[in-house]
Simulated assay, not measured.
Amino acid sequence: MNFETIEKAYALLLENVQLIQNQLKTTFYDALIEQNALYVTKEAQDSRIVDNNQALEKLNLSAEEWRRAFQFLLIKASQTELLQVNHQLTPDSIGFILLYLLEELTADKSLDVLEIGSGTGNLAYTLLNNSQKELHYMGIEVDDLLIDLSASMADVMQLDAQFIQEDAVRPQLMKPSDVIISDLPIGYYPNDAIAKRYQVASTSEHTYAHHLLMEQSLKYLKNDGLAIFLAPNNLLTSPQSDLLKDWLHQAASVLAVIALPENLFGHEKNAKSIFVLKKQTDTPQETFVYQLGDLQQQESMLAFIENFQKWKTDNGQS
């Protein structure tokens, strides 16, 4: 991966997005979607945009270099056009841990992967660009802007990724997946009529959306399928957690709980952990529980990998 090339791509993309934004009087995100369409179709009329897109093409970016350039653009956009917390990028440091878990805990070389709440697509592209396995990916996202944004970037990167715009809490018709993955959106689900269909539903208040999505996700898993969630640290101790634990006892085994450093999230109340579930089997599972240290320190990551591999060996995991 060439970081100088990524910087050049970022500069060219940024200039085009700003040109389009000024011409169309639109948002940065809509302008980026338009830029991606013009790059793919080569239908731009403005000579400056045409020249920049030709220069981009000559850079011959890999899919991962495209992802990094887009990531810098989205970070730039977030400085002036804030996305809500649930729509923000999943940090790469977390994305690569999720990828590691996906690859270490699955035996098949080809996997059907479903992401709940695919957002801007950054986590999807981290997986697709870097996995050693063949991933057949589908993302569900309710926000139309994010669907258009993620799909437009997939077109530029020429990645085989499918997206559908739906409220993931509502039942969908789709084939079972090998792996469900989600940086779970946090908050209350407003529709009590829908929520009451679930075992985790609260009878005294709105139900947590992330609880509903966890229950719904397992309905889309194959037998022995894997669910990897990024969820609040207090998932199993917060209000309504008894309802969640009652459901979990029937539906899944908790393979792993990996606490992430709080400094990744800006504030203690926003901190999350990784929860790995396996669709319920008759085989008892010992849970891997681990507190990750500084993700930028090699020693910390090597210690995590060593402990995880020992747990895998001791528990006969794939």
Results as ranks from 00 to 15, higher is better:
residue 227 A to C: 07
residue 225 G to H: 01
residue 209 A to R: 09
residue 237 T to Y: 00
residue 219 K to P: 10
residue 204 S to V: 15
residue 224 D to H: 13
residue 229 F to H: 04
residue 237 T to D: 15
residue 202 S to M: 08
residue 231 A to T: 13
residue 205 E to C: 14
residue 237 T to M: 02
residue 224 D to M: 09
residue 218 L to V: 04
residue 214 M to V: 09
residue 213 L to Y: 08
residue 208 Y to E: 15
residue 221 L to A: 02
residue 204 S to K: 15
residue 214 M to R: 01
residue 219 K to V: 12
residue 222 K to V: 10
residue 237 T to W: 02
residue 230 L to D: 04
residue 215 E to D: 05
residue 208 Y to K: 08
residue 215 E to Y: 00
residue 238 S to F: 07
residue 213 L to K: 06
residue 201 A to L: 05
residue 218 L to N: 10
residue 224 D to A: 09
residue 220 Y to G: 01
residue 208 Y to H: 09
residue 217 S to V: 05
residue 206 H to A: 15
residue 219 K to R: 14
residue 210 H to W: 06
residue 235 L to V: 11
residue 206 H to R: 15
residue 202 S to T: 05
residue 204 S to C: 12
residue 204 S to D: 15
residue 205 E to F: 14
residue 218 L to Y: 08
residue 229 F to C: 02
residue 219 K to L: 11
residue 230 L to W: 05
residue 216 Q to V: 08
residue 236 L to G: 07
residue 211 H to Y: 15
residue 214 M to P: 00
residue 225 G to R: 00
residue 207 T to N: 07
residue 201 A to S: 08
residue 223 N to Q: 12
residue 236 L to R: 12
residue 210 H to R: 05
residue 208 Y to C: 05
residue 222 K to L: 03
residue 219 K to E: 14
residue 227 A to F: 12
residue 230 L to E: 09
residue 233 N to P: 09
residue 225 G to N: 04
residue 214 M to N: 05
residue 218 L to K: 02
residue 205 E to R: 14
residue 205 E to V: 13
residue 219 K to H: 14
residue 207 T to D: 13
residue 223 N to G: 14
residue 229 F to M: 03
residue 236 L to Y: 08
residue 223 N to L: 13
residue 215 E to N: 01
residue 214 M to F: 05
residue 232 P to Y: 03
residue 207 T to V: 08
residue 207 T to S: 12
residue 209 A to E: 09
residue 207 T to K: 04
residue 233 N to R: 12
residue 223 N to M: 12
residue 204 S to Q: 14
residue 234 N to Q: 13
residue 238 S to Y: 07
residue 225 G to F: 07
residue 208 Y to P: 01
residue 231 A to R: 03
residue 227 A to W: 11
residue 224 D to G: 07
residue 219 K to C: 13
residue 235 L to S: 06
residue 234 N to C: 06
residue 235 L to C: 05
residue 219 K to F: 13
residue 233 N to A: 10
residue 204 S to N: 14
residue 212 L to I: 07
residue 234 N to V: 12
residue 223 N to D: 14
residue 206 H to W: 11
residue 207 T to G: 08
residue 221 L to M: 00
residue 218 L to S: 03
residue 237 T to L: 13
residue 209 A to F: 00
residue 216 Q to T: 07
residue 230 L to Y: 05
residue 216 Q to N: 07
residue 215 E to G: 01
residue 214 M to Q: 10
residue 220 Y to P: 00
residue 216 Q to G: 09
residue 226 L to C: 01
residue 227 A to N: 05
residue 222 K to Y: 06
residue 201 A to C: 00
residue 231 A to W: 00
residue 234 N to A: 14
residue 209 A to I: 09
residue 203 T to Q: 15
residue 211 H to K: 08
residue 236 L to I: 11
residue 226 L to Y: 05
residue 236 L to H: 10
residue 238 S to Q: 15
residue 237 T to G: 11
residue 201 A to Q: 07
residue 226 L to E: 02
residue 212 L to K: 08
residue 229 F to E: 03
residue 222 K to P: 00
residue 228 I to L: 11
residue 203 T to P: 04
residue 218 L to C: 06
residue 207 T to Q: 08
residue 231 A to L: 02
residue 204 S to Y: 13
residue 235 L to E: 07
residue 233 N to H: 10
residue 215 E to I: 05
residue 234 N to Y: 03
residue 236 L to W: 08
residue 224 D to R: 11
residue 225 G to M: 02
